[in-house]
């Protein structure tokens, strides 16, 4: 098993922390993981992305050219990363703010209206957990049990009171993701 993934969007959407939770979930499942963030001027200017590799063998390169899965959360990232999904791979995106939708026919494309769902629930902070839940529905690379453990590991103790809400959002994310036919 090897999953090479990019999560790309705006700073503040929880891009880096979503990747960290997934990486920690991989650790809980005894997988090898790497988590490599963009830390450069792009982050300071607004967009952020993180490459996560989860594998049952040691991770050779943490730098990835073509991804098994891309989770795209803004238009700039769509423009940059749609072409970098492996043929047969998966592209997941939130339609909010996307004007040019993906056009590739050789990959599986899913939409998840996480911005709208978070707004409906009146809690913007669950946005990235909806995304994570949607992703795990499509690509169950780690068990839910280990995701919950990874979530707990990556949060500081003072934030553990938010665990039930986050777990509920992960489940909800799995319900609202839709395949684009």
């Amino acid at each position: 098993m090897k999953e090479e993934l990019i999560i790309a969007g705006f700073g503040g959407q929880g891009v880096l922390s979503t990747g960290k939770i997934l990486a920690y979930s991989g650790v809980m499942q005894d997988y090898e993981v790497s988590w490599l963030p963009s830390y450069g001027p792009e982050m300071r200017g607004g967009t952020a992305n993180v490459t996560v590799v989860v594998s049952d063998t040691p991770v050779s390169s943490p730098i990835v050219q073509m991804y098994d899965t891309a989770i795209i959360l803004n238009q700039q990232s769509m423009d940059k990363f749609e072409a970098r999904v492996k043929p047969g791979g998966v592209l997941i995106y939130d339609t909010n703010g996307i004007t040019h939708h993906p056009t590739r026919k050789d990959i599986e494309i899913y939409t998840i209206d996480a911005t709208a769902e978070a707004a409906r629930q009146g809690n913007a902070r669950i946005f990235n957990m909806l995304i994570l839940g949607g992703y795990l529905k499509v690509r169950p690379v780690v068990t839910m049990e280990n995701v919950y453990k990874g979530l707990k590991k990556s949060l500081p103790e003072r934030a553990w009171k938010t665990l039930p809400a986050n777990e509920a959002a992960i489940i909800r994310g799995g319900e609202i993701i839709r395949k684009v036919e």
Binding site: A23, V27, V33, W35, L36, V59, P62, I63
Partner: peptide, 10 residues
């Protein structure tokens, strides 16, 4: 370098 410094691993 920046890759090893910024990367998270086990």
């Amino acid at each position: 370098d920046g890759v090893i410094g910024q990367m998270m691993e086990k």
